[in-house]
Nucleic acid binder design. Structure first.
Lengths: 181, 181
DNA sequence: TAACTATGCGTACATATGTACATATCAAGG
DNA sequence: CCTTGATATGTACATATGTACGCATAGTTA
């Protein structure tokens, strides 16, 4: 057996997880295989089963990390708002900005939702995510408003990713205002 | 070669499409195979490639049918409303009722969103779906309100399918009222 | 009745896939 | 220097998968 190329590679596990999300974004869960992820992470196939018990376990971990990341960014953005007006503007940003709601993130979210529907651990992760979002909104808004805003962010984000003529910033701001009042 | 069991079966094509959605609902697109669908439709494997060019074509057609069905039910429910108040109640129904937003439908929607993101024909189908929904809402509400309601239906439906303690009918009604005003 | 043709089906096959595992390599301690 | 245990890797293998295709069948026509 020929000698290995790279022997010491402490970040390998993390890189595999990162590569997994890349592959899912490009090929969907349906097209995600050990070999494709290995290639994307520039890692031998054997590393896959060494670091992760199964493909399902790998996907579960990758999606969990994704949920944590997105959820943390969401909370940070809202925590940075000092006033209610600023919080509204933050909500508008989360909906309209290509950074928060990038095509890649949306795509991965769809895959995550579908995957989580059949994966109890991930269901709990998503519940935690939703609770955290609601808590972040709850810093600035009443509970019912927070719930409504959370759902509206979800819905508008999705529709904007489909709509060839998505609502502009002004219109989104007006809709948010209706919910906040 | 043994004689076939069933020779005349005019609805076969439709039954395969129906079975495809069943299999997707149970195993996800990732777990949908010719053989599984054939078994679910009680049809020989050979029928798959006879009736459909490829697995991708089958999924595309099945999802297109799903979108048409759901979209038609949505429009029907709204068309049945005679007043704005009735239309609001219809919207609440669409969000809260287990019939419109059944777990199965939600699950299939997630799969559809993920699939459509990589399938241009289905992207167009989804755009059509969204346009139709908005038009149905537009019978009763102003354009901006229709857009907001459409997104809210999407978001609340999704969040209700994740939330262990989803918003009750009264709260949903209150949220809809805020958007309509 | 006999031939014809569209429809339907069983099976074969090349390929891809998840996973196991025997072996190799390295870092550290005795 | 030598041993040891953790880490890493190439490869093998059973199985599943998409798809092609030759042949059977039934309804129709002459």
């Amino acid at each position: 057996m020929p000698a290995a190329q790279r022997r010491f590679d402490p970040d390998r596990r993390a890189r595999i997880i990162q590569a997994t999300l890349d592959v899912v974004a490009e090929h969907g869960v349906a097209g995600t295989t050990h070999r494709r992820v290995a290639a994307a992470a520039d890692v031998p196939l054997g590393s896959m089963t060494y670091h992760f018990d199964s493909l399902d376990a790998l996907l579960t971990e990758a999606f969990t990390g994704l949920a944590d990341t997105v959820s943390a960014r969401f909370a940070d953005r809202l925590a940075a708002a000092a006033t209610v007006d600023a919080a509204c503007e933050a909500v508008v940003d989360l909906i309209v900005s290509d950074i928060w709601a990038s095509p890649r993130t949306m795509l991965l979210s769809y895959e995550l939702y579908a995957f989580a529907a059949r994966n109890p651990p991930l269901r709990r992760v998503m519940q935690g995510w939703m609770a955290k979002s609601r808590a972040a909104l709850g810093q600035h808004f009443a509970p019912e408003t927070a719930r409504a805003l959370d759902a509206m962010i979800e819905g508008l984000t999705i529709h904007r990713s489909v709509d060839p003529h998505p609502a502009g910033r002004a219109e989104v701001r007006a809709i948010v205002a209706r919910l906040v009042r």
